[in-house]
Every structure is written in C-alpha cells, then in structure tokens.
Amino acid sequence: FDIYVVTADYLPLGAEQDAITLREGQYVEVLDAAHPLRWLVRTKPTKSSPSRQGWVSPAYLDRRL
C-alpha cells in the first residue's frame, strides 16, 4: 500500500459515515483511492492506539516516497 502523511488535522463532519479523525504528521496507508473525494486509509498502530481504518479527504494527504 502507498504511504501518505497527513498535512493538517482532519476532523470529519458528523454526517460522514466511516470517517476517522487524523492528526497532522500522522502516517497512513491508502487502501482505496478509486473515489476522487474520499479515500479509504488505515492508520499505523502506536503503543497507545491500535490501527484504525476509515474514509478521509485526499486533500489532507501528501504522498511519501
């Protein structure tokens, strides 16, 4: 999967189903980028939180090589 970094805090609107909150600087794996406005991502697990999966706007993501 492609690795992206979150460029700004992402707080989903209440109406968005299956969306997750992301923090600036967080790394995520993009699982599904087929839709231009919503990408399915999975967060990297940390010592304090397990990995999470949900939909985010790709405008908040920047690809890492």
Rank of each mutant, 00 (worst) to 15 (best):
T46Y: 08
L65Q: 13
T43Q: 02
G54M: 09
Q53T: 15
Y60D: 03
Y4R: 03
A33L: 05
D2Q: 12
P45L: 05
P58M: 04
T7K: 11
P58I: 04
F1R: 10
A8I: 08
D32C: 10
I3L: 11
R42A: 05
L13F: 11
L40H: 04
W55M: 04
L22C: 02
P45D: 08
E16A: 09
V6A: 07
D2K: 11
Y10H: 07
G25Q: 02
D62W: 07
T46H: 07
T21M: 13
V5F: 09
T46K: 05
A59T: 11
L11Y: 15
L11N: 14
G14A: 15
P50K: 07
G54L: 11
D2V: 11
D62E: 15
R23Y: 15
G14I: 12
T21Y: 13
A8F: 07
S51Y: 07
Y10K: 03
P58L: 02
G25K: 02
A8D: 05
R23Q: 10
A19R: 08
H35Y: 08
L37Y: 11
K44V: 15
Y10A: 03
T46N: 08
T46E: 10
L22Y: 01
R42D: 01
P36G: 06
W55F: 08
A59M: 12
P50I: 07
R42M: 05
R64A: 15
I20T: 03
K44L: 15
L65N: 12
K44Q: 14
R42V: 04
L13H: 13
S57D: 15
A8P: 02
T21F: 14
A8L: 08
A59N: 10
Q53V: 14
D9G: 06
V28Q: 00
A8T: 09
I20G: 03
P50Y: 05
Q26V: 06
R63L: 15
D2E: 12
V6T: 04
F1G: 10
Y60F: 12
L31T: 02
P50R: 06
V28L: 03
R42Q: 06
K47T: 12
H35N: 15
L31D: 01
P50Q: 07
E29M: 11
W39R: 00
L31M: 07
V6S: 02
E16G: 11
L11V: 15
Y60E: 02
H35V: 04
T43I: 08
V6F: 02
L22K: 00
D18C: 10
F1L: 09
L40N: 02
V6Q: 00
T43R: 02
Q17N: 12
R38L: 10
D62Q: 15
R42C: 04
A34G: 11
S49V: 11
S48T: 13
G14W: 12
P58N: 04
S51Q: 08
